[in-house]
Simulated scan of single mutants.
Amino acid sequence: MKLTINGIAQEHVEPLTVQALLDVLGFEGKPVVVELNHRALFPRELGETALHDGDALEVVQITAGG
């Protein structure tokens, strides 16, 4: 399955949820904001939202700073 993640085309194995993809990308347990096809997802949606060929995601890790 072809996905575009933060503007970069990537190939991933199907089937895959957003949360499973985040785990593969190394974001497991980290606070992130995810936009799927120009729609922001609630954290509760990450584990239940399936990805499909051609989807585009933007993933931003939330960090604290001062």
Results as ranks from 00 to 15, higher is better:
Glu35Val: 03
Ile5Pro: 06
Glu28Phe: 09
Asp23Ser: 02
Leu25Asp: 08
Pro15Gln: 10
Leu57Arg: 09
Ile62Val: 15
Phe27His: 13
Asp53Glu: 14
Val13Tyr: 03
Ala56His: 13
Leu25Val: 05
Leu21Val: 01
Ala20Phe: 00
Ile8Pro: 02
Ala64Gln: 15
Lys30Ile: 00
Thr4Gly: 01
Leu51Trp: 00
Gly65Val: 04
Gly26Ala: 11
Pro31Val: 05
Glu28Leu: 11
Lys2Ile: 05
Glu35Gly: 02
Asp53Lys: 06
Asn6Asp: 09
Gln10Ser: 10
Leu41Val: 11
Thr63Leu: 15
Val18Pro: 08
Gln10Ile: 03
Ala50Thr: 11
Gly47His: 08
Arg44Ala: 13
Ile5Leu: 12
Val18His: 07
Leu36Arg: 05
Leu51Tyr: 00
Ala20Ser: 02
Gly66Leu: 08
Leu51Gly: 01
Val32Cys: 15
Glu48Ser: 05
Val59Cys: 11
Glu58Ile: 08
Ala9Gly: 02
Asp23Ala: 08
His38Cys: 07
Pro15Ile: 07
Gln61Val: 11
Arg39Gln: 12
Thr17Gly: 00
Asp55His: 07
Gly65Asp: 04
His38Asp: 13
Leu3Cys: 12
Gly54Glu: 06
Ala9Tyr: 01
Ala56Asp: 13
Ile62Gly: 14
Leu41Lys: 09
Glu14Ser: 13
Asp53Leu: 04
Arg44Asp: 08
Val18Gln: 10
Glu48Leu: 00
Val32Asn: 13
Asp23Asn: 04
Ala40His: 13
Gly47Pro: 05
Leu3Ala: 08
Val60Asp: 06
Ile62Ser: 15
Val13Lys: 07
Val24Gln: 12
His38Pro: 01
Glu48Ala: 07
Phe27Cys: 01
Val59Asp: 09
Ala20Arg: 00
Val24Lys: 13
